[in-house]
């Protein structure tokens, strides 16, 4: 990955001169994302413009983490490639950072929506391939000591032609390997949030990502979110209704978590009632991804070895 400037302040070609913006394809907290053409090569890229005009804050921590983490992880085929970081100025003369990514033409959210709109099911082998790629990408992140913490269909980019899946948006990701102050509670879109996070755990692990992967797995099969809560409490209740209300027996230590209360008591239902289109091996893998006790939840590496993937041609993945 190139870096456009050194600590000595060497100026080079600005982002404005280097790229031609073609269209706006998205907008985040800190700026816009454009499809753009690199003038020198004609290559199509995604240009993520980060405003630094929030003078009090400086470089947003999401940008700082995303660039740093992608600098390590971008060599994996299932993690979006950060090609360059450029510094520029906007019309008011304020500093702007441009993150230059490889361009992907869709994401898993749009992909699922397209099947929902046509009333078709996503072919089981397609689901299997996408899930394997997701597990492979997450295993790579976890192997490098990185938690994603915001896995959801919208953050999984895809190439429609090749059906290649890539993990993106590592703005909430963090290294989990060095002792730090308590982690924030305010991570991850509610629907994909692990129960330990919802219950206020302040030290959590790779298992939070695996829970999200499980939720995405079910959504690929049913084309609907597995647990679609609109508040933290509702989210927990959705989970409890399907998997049963946890207790000390199934999840030692659960009642000691900061936000644990007395909840309505539900017995666990069979996962096949919620994900009817999934075969037995798929249900077995899903159940291991949705284990209540984080330490019992399957790892991404182990998930890749699950029998569910046995009949998948992994050569090109």
């Amino acid at each position: 990955m190139e870096m456009e400037k050194t600590g000595a302040g060497v100026a080079v070609l600005s982002a404005k001169e280097a790229f031609e913006k073609l269209e706006k394809v998205g907008e985040g907290t800190y700026g816009k994302v454009y499809r753009a053409r690199e003038k020198a090569t004609g290559k199509i890229v995604a240009l993520k413009k980060t405003r630094l005009h929030e003078d009090q804050e400086g470089v947003p921590p999401t940008t700082l983490r995303e660039v740093s983490i992608l600098r390590m992880l971008s060599r994996d085929p299932h993690v979006v490639r950060l090609m360059d970081v450029k510094q520029g100025q906007n019309k008011e003369g304020k500093t702007v950072l441009y993150l230059v990514f490889e361009y992907m033409d869709t994401d898993l959210k749009k992909f699922i929506r397209s099947f929902r709109q046509t009333g078709q099911s996503i072919p089981p082998q397609t689901i299997k391939s996408l899930m394997y790629q997701l597990c492979k990408g997450i295993a790579f992140c976890h192997g490098h000591g990185i938690l994603h913490r915001d896995l959801k269909p919208h953050n999984l980019l895809m190439d429609r032609k090749t059906m290649m899946l890539k993990i993106a948006d590592l703005g909430l990701a963090r290294a989990f390997t060095v002792p730090i102050k308590k982690y924030t509670h305010e991570i991850l879109t509610l629907w994909y949030r692990a129960p330990e996070v919802l219950l206020g755990a302040t030290h959590y692990s790779m298992a939070v990502d695996i829970w999200s992967v499980g939720c995405i797995f079910a959504e690929l099969v049913t084309k609907q979110a597995l647990f679609a809560g609109d508040s933290e409490l509702q989210q927990l209740l959705h989970i409890f209704r399907l998997l049963g209300t946890p207790n000390e027996e199934v999840w030692p230590g659960v009642s000691k978590l900061k936000d644990w209360h007395e909840y309505p008591q539900w017995n666990p239902k069979s996962l096949s009632t919620a994900v009817p289109g999934l075969d037995e091996l798929g249900l077995d893998l899903l159940s291991q991804m949705l284990e209540y006790e984080p330490s019992k939840r399957i790892s991404a590496k182990k998930a890749m070895e699950h029998a569910y993937f046995n009949d998948l041609d992994k050569g090109h993945l």
Partner: peptide, 15 residues
């Protein structure tokens, strides 16, 4: 900004 570019955004520290 200069410090980040000077580090090449190499911020992660392994265990």
């Amino acid at each position: 900004v200069d410090f980040l570019f000077g580090l090449g955004f190499h911020l992660n520290v392994t265990p």
